[in-house]
């Protein structure tokens, strides 16, 4: 469209998106420009047809085929090797790609998308399952830890070789190695 015609502003006018001043200017132009007027008519007609289309429900068969597309299909065919310079082969629909219609239930009458409705029901259950699993895991690990934390009963009985340790202590600290003497004396018994 040339710069003298309405161009993009024509679409905005049809959609009612122009401001008051712009709309007045557009109407003045339409009154004077037959080309733009014809285009405006065409646009209005198209919009009317589109609006009428939205009121029509798609056919049952189309809906079933669309739903079936979400299900896992057969394995993909092996890739066909291409010769050098050969163009990509066209995608050919295989028989049996679409499952029989009787395998799927009909679309819900509330007209909501199936996935959203299913997710709304499944999410809380998943959370409960997760919480339950976590609780079970904590209880299981806790019980195992409590059982494993018991004092071992099969360890050897030890008699510390204190006199040997006293000598080892003296050797590493540099003191005189002394055996265990008998304590005597009282407080303040300083030399």
């Amino acid at each position: 469209m040339s710069g003298g015609h309405l161009g993009e502003r024509l679409t905005a006018l049809i959609d009612g998106e122009l401001g008051h001043h712009e709309r007045e200017k557009a109407h003045r132009h339409l009154a004077a420009c037959g080309e733009c007027r014809a285009e405006a008519e065409a646009l209005r007609g198209l919009k009317k047809r589109l609006r009428s289309l939205s009121d029509t429900m798609p056919s049952e068969g189309l809906l079933r085929r669309l739903e079936a597309m979400g299900e896992p299909g057969d394995p993909l065919p092996p890739p066909v090797p291409r010769l050098p310079g050969q163009a990509r082969p066209p995608v050919v629909a295989r028989p049996g790609d679409v499952r029989p219609s009787h395998t799927r239930p009909s679309r819900p009458s509330d007209n909501r998308p199936r996935r959203a409705a299913a997710t709304g029901r499944r999410l809380p259950r998943g959370r409960y399952l997760l919480a339950g699993a976590a609780t079970l895991a904590v209880l299981g690990v806790g019980s195992a830890a409590f059982a494993a934390g018991a004092d071992p009963g099969s360890l050897p009985r030890v008699t510390p070789s204190v006199e040997q340790f006293a000598v080892e202590h003296a050797l590493t600290s540099g003191d005189v190695p002394l055996t265990d003497p008998r304590p005597e004396g009282t407080a303040g018994d300083h030399p």
Binding site: E184, G185, T186
Partner: peptide
């Protein structure tokens, strides 16, 4: 002369 005093005030000498 080596001596030490315990927490009870008793001394031990070698």
């Amino acid at each position: 002369y080596i001596t030490s005093w315990s927490r009870s005030g008793m001394s031990t000498t070698s």
